[in-house]
Design a binder for these strands. Sequence first.
DNA 1: CTGGCTATCCTTAGGCA
DNA 2: ATGCCTAAGGATAGCCA
Lengths: 123, 123
Amino acid sequence: MGRGKLTMELICNERSRMITYHKRKKGLTKKAREFQILCGVDACVIILGPKQNNHPVDVETWPTDLVEVRRIINRFRSEGADRKKTQDLSYFFEARKKKVDDEIAKLRKSLHGKQSSLRGIIV
Amino acid sequence: MGRGKLTMELICNERSRMITYHKRKKGLTKKAREFQILCGVDACVIILGPKQNNHPVDVETWPTDLVEVRRIINRFRSEGADRKKTQDLSYFFEARKKKVDDEIAKLRKSLHGKQSSLRGIIV
DNA sequence: CTGGCTATCCTTAGGCA
DNA sequence: ATGCCTAAGGATAGCCA
């Protein structure tokens, strides 16, 4: 954009990169805001800026209200994870592991005093 | 944009809203991708679509890899919260309270046997 | 709905003060 | 760094097939 096309790769010149960082950070959050308003949906953007010497990392979010950000993350964690269960392997395995853990816990509980019968069985 | 300006408010017509939803969702994630590549930063977008009858909520993220999304959320939780300590009131007060509590604890400890000198002073 | 098309508006890279 | 300016390229609302 601007005066001349930009190849889609990391901007080498640090000064240009920082300027573009600030400009596009603003543009991205603006788009998120418009998207949310126009379409009436929850949209959340989290930006973790470049590491700078003697500065904490620049953090920017949309919405700016961290309570809102957390709310959307929580919705994502529950509804999003649910939605993607069959697509995302790690979630799948996490869910399966939990199920197995719960089963084991239940067994342990109901088997008090029956330990002998479990000799040689890994529980 | 497009043919004519758009007022920044919820699009009433449901059909138009859905079309715009899909178009802008694509645009937003593209911007996030470009931003990440050009500037070499962690950027994460979470979109929770409109509720539809007989459909689970449409969830879209950038990056599409949920492991990456979680990594960025975790970075945000740790570094982000840290960064905003001085901006976010709840964090600010939490931090201040802790500091005061620590001071009080320290005082109490070092003043064993000197209680009389604190008579009338709230500690 | 799904996928182009395009007139218009928007974003922004590079300059400059 | 900090903030405007502007030309070019990008995004997209409304249409149409």
